[in-house]
Every structure is written in C-alpha cells, then in structure tokens.
Design a protein around this nucleic acid. Structure first.
Lengths: 214, 214
DNA sequence: CTCCGGAAGTTACCAGCGGTAACCCACCTG
DNA sequence: CAGGTGGGTTACCGCTGGTAACTTCCGGAG
C-alpha cells in the first residue's frame, strides 16, 4: 500500500484518475465487456466507493474510458484521412486503420461498443435515442464533418454528409465485427471489398445469367 | 388462473410456448431492452422457473424472440428484394422496409440489437465472435446470399458478397439507429441518401473548392 | 377406488451486480 | 492539543439471472 497519502498537490487527483483509468483499461483488456466495478477496483488496489467518487457511476467510468480510446482512434483516423493521396487511397487507409485497431484490441472495442445499458436511468418522456454506443456516434459525426467540409455535395449536402458518416461508420463496424469473429479473409481483402462497395460496384455489376436477376 | 392443466395434447407445450413468447413481446414492447425475466413471468401470469423450463436461460428466450421477429422482418425484406423493379428501386424499397419496421417498434428492435450479454458463458479459448446481435448477423448472411446468387461478381464474388451483406446491413442499422434518435429528416430522405451512397456518389462527387480536398 | 408417475407451478433461496451510507484514520492547520 | 478534511474501508441495499426443493393436480394401472 505504501501509504502515499495526502500529497497536497492539486494535480494529484488527476494523476490518480489516470492511474484508475489505466487499471480499468487493464481489466477490460483482460475481461472484455463483462468487466465489473469490483474487478476494476481490485485491479487498482482499492475498493469500489472511491471509484464511484471519481467517476460517479459505471457510465461515467465507461465514458471516461471511451473518450480516451475514441480520442486515440480518432487521431489515427484523421491522420489516415489527411494523408496526401487520392480519395480512394484515403478511404482504404482509413478503413484499414480502424480494422487494425479493433484487431489489436478486440476486447476493448467490444467493451466500448456494447455498454450494457445503465438500467434504471431512462424514462425521458418519449425517449428514443442515445442508448447505445457513443463511440460509434462520435465517429459518425466526425466523419460526417470531414465529408461535409471537403466534398461538394450540392444542396442538402449537409444532411447527406451526416447520413453517410453514420452509414459508413456502421458499415465499417458491422463488417469489422463479423470479420473479427469469422476471420474469413485477410484484412486487405476486407478493405478492398468495402471500398469497392462504397465505390458503387454494386450498382455497376451485372446480373448473373443463371439467377433470377437483381 | 382457469386451471388449464394436463391437457394431454402433444401440441399443448408449443401453444404454451407461444403464449409465453407473446407475453414476452408485450413486456419488451413496454420496457425495452431492460425487460427482466421477473417482469416477463409476471406479465405471463406465472413465475420465473417455468420460464426457465421453457427457454433454458435468458439467452434462450432472447433467441426465441429474435427468431420470431427476424423471420417476420426477413419475409418483408425478401418481398421488397423480390419486387419486379430495377435494382435501385429494390434497394430503396428494402431500406425503406427495414426503416419502417424499426420506426414502428423501436423498443423491440433495440432489445434485439442490444442483448446485454449472457455474463458467465464464454471463454472458448481465443474467443472472439458471436457476442452481440444475431439478428444483424442473420440479416447480413441473408443479404449476402441474395447478392451472391443474383449478382455476377466474378472470381472471389462469394467473399465479396458476404462482406457487402454485412457491410450494408451495418450501414442500414447504424444509420437507422442514429435517425431514430435524432429524426433529422424524413424516412424517404434517409433512404435516398443511403442509396446514393451505395451507388457510389461518394466516389464521383467533386471536391469543395474552398476545402482542403478529399 | 387406490395408488403412482409425472408435468405444471410455487416458494425460497443463491451468487453476483451496481450503488451507497456510515464509519475510520491519518494528516495538515490553527 | 483540537479538529476538520480527504482517502479509504466495511457492510449493507435492491435488484438481477438462475436454481433446488416442495406442492398440487392430473391421467392411467392394478
């Protein structure tokens, strides 16, 4: 235990917080989405209540963790998006960056994608949204912004960009999730297939001669 | 209670099962993804253990419910996919069918998409997959099959079709989820935007003159 | 009619979860 | 020395998914 107590420095709380987050990271990396507050506290060498003092509730800790990883991932993705190359190369590079990330730390990203709900929070009148994965939403919004400010989509382009942002992120996520589970091909193949899809190959491909047509 | 017991008919168990599923449907429709076994049992007018006798565990009941809804939805989607029209119209119609479904019963589809994990099941060695939403997987595989048997994709088309199936379904799901939460536009607008995306408009659109280019 | 097997259903419980109240103790300050 | 304040703990609450053990009712066999 070392009795490192009452340091007095104002920055101590933030450092402690980072320590706790790193401990949480470790246990999430080990246990996946079913990481419990007890386990995280134990890994950090302390007990639950101080975790709750720092993060409020599980959603708070989840959010802090998510912000961390999302920031890191977003930096990588922005770098890929900004590389000096033609548009298709950039899209490929971005997809590959995302897939490499979830391949390297599947447990973490599963935790981020499936938060398991807060349980007794909701009931805000009509209530529809913001239930699931904030990471995906953030990625979607971010991509939407990039598209919106760089691609000329004419009138209504704003809306189009947002739809595309969330749609592309969803495509990436679902395909990546499925690929992680079945590993049916190399990462590069997956990237190529998805890029082909975004490049409209579904529209231009011909019907099979022996099929009912499409 | 009516004392309807020991009927002797062999089909009685199946009818009971359907009754229970309908009760589960009702409470899921009311409580969303946080529907508990207790609540479902209460709604069905019985207690937990018999629920467990019928479905094994929560995952079993979840699966039974999912199969039901997925079957129904798949029928609608197949109908849309098979309508006599050009390819683009079919894709639009399919997207619209899906979105209309989740718009009509958001609670149900949220429950299906976010099962909240079983907790103490896993640990199969390396363990990666099949953690989350079987509905999405089924939709993805189904769409993959349709694409694969109708569209001529040349060599490697099988793999391409599977990637596209899961990718398109993911796009549909994420965009739909986001749209349900924010309602930024009419359903028809969303359908058009997604179809444009699949038709490669991202590839053909020009760069903004005032932006950094993409 | 009696007795038995078995299915339906119940009560009562278990372990574990997220979350919290109340207490403890060491330190720094006056 | 008094005392307040921050980091920490124990012990608990209500709830969840899941189960063991008991009761009740039925149809059929002797």
């Amino acid at each position: 235990m070392e009795t490192t107590q009452q340091t007095g420095e104002p920055g101590a709380a933030e450092r402690r917080r980072r320590e706790l987050l790193e401990a949480a990271d470790r246990v999430v990396l080990r246990d996946g989405p079913k990481a419990s507050m007890n386990a995280i506290a134990a890994e950090a060498g302390i007990t639950k209540p101080i975790l709750y003092r720092h993060f409020g509730d599980k959603a708070g800790l989840y959010q802090a963790l998510a912000v961390r990883h999302t920031d890191a991932l977003l930096d990588s993705l922005r770098a890929a998006l900004d590389a000096p190359a033609e548009r298709r190369r950039r899209v490929e590079s971005t997809l590959d960056t995302y897939l490499a990330a979830i391949e390297a730390r599947p447990q973490v990203y599963r935790f981020l994608m499936h938060p398991a709900e807060d349980s007794h929070t909701a009931e805000r009148g009509f209530d529809v949204g913001l239930h699931s994965a904030p990471l995906l939403r953030r990625l979607g919004e971010e991509l939407a912004q990039v598209i919106s400010e760089r691609v000329d989509l004419g009138p209504g382009g704003e809306r189009l960009a947002r739809v595309w942002g969330h749609g592309i992120v969803g495509m990436m996520h679902a395909a990546g999730d499925w690929w992680l589970g079945e590993r049916p091909c190399e990462r590069a193949d997956l990237v190529a297939a998805l890029t082909d899809l975004l490049w409209g190959r579904l529209a231009t491909a011909g019907n099979r001669e022996d099929g009912p047509g499409f």
